[in-house]
Amino acid sequence: MKTYLFTYEQNMPIPLAQAWDFFSSPLNLAKITPVEMGFTVTSPFNEQTKMYEGMIITYKITPLFGIKMDWMTEITHVKDGQYFVDEQRFGPYALWHHQHHFKEIPGGVHMTDILNYAIPYGPIGTLANAILVKKQVEKIFEHRRKAIIEMFGEYGV
């Protein structure tokens, strides 16, 4: 199985506590995901729900070609105010391991995402990544970058 590494970094002009509060709420993920992905959290959470190790989060998602899929992730590691990790338990990937790191910097927060993923179906999955999936992952994070700027402002401006 071929695995892929995607790393993304962004600075935000907000306090660490505010960044952590936003990103540690499972419901906020839909706010930074492209609308066309039809991303909906189906777990019975409310706005006060905060993540914890062992938390299972279920979603409906339309990643490609309008095909709706179920997705389940587990929050496997949490260090309050510093990082958390989500791992797919069921969904479109053969592997999904996503680290979210937060570090206080002058005037804001530096956020780093480290995503390791794999596509099922052997050589067909490798081709699908080259043609579609890698571009889709990049598009999601670019959308997220813009959404974060709209919500919190641009760092250093």
Rank of each mutant, 00 (worst) to 15 (best):
F65P: 06
D86I: 01
D70Q: 11
H77V: 15
T62P: 08
A94Q: 15
Q99K: 12
A94H: 12
H97V: 08
Y59S: 03
F102C: 01
W71K: 03
D86F: 00
K60M: 10
F90I: 07
K68V: 13
I61T: 14
V85D: 04
I61V: 15
E104G: 03
P63A: 06
T62A: 14
E87M: 09
I57D: 06
I57F: 08
L64E: 09
Y59Q: 08
I75H: 06
T73R: 01
P63Q: 06
Y59V: 11
Y59L: 09
T76K: 00
L64I: 12
W71L: 08
M55L: 15
W96F: 12
D86M: 01
Q99P: 01
M72K: 15
K68L: 09
E74P: 06
H98M: 01
H100E: 04
W96E: 02
H97E: 04
K68A: 15
L95F: 07
D86W: 00
W71G: 10
G81N: 00
G66C: 08
P63G: 09
T76R: 00
L95G: 03
P63F: 05
W96Q: 01
I67A: 11
F65V: 10
H98I: 02
T76G: 02
Q82W: 02
K103D: 09
G91S: 06
G91N: 04
I67Y: 11
L64N: 06
D80G: 10
I75M: 04
I67K: 12
E74R: 14
G66E: 06
I61N: 08
T73A: 10
R89Q: 13
D70A: 12
H97N: 13
K79G: 07
I67F: 13
D70F: 12
F84Y: 13
M69S: 13
F90T: 10
E104R: 08
W71F: 11
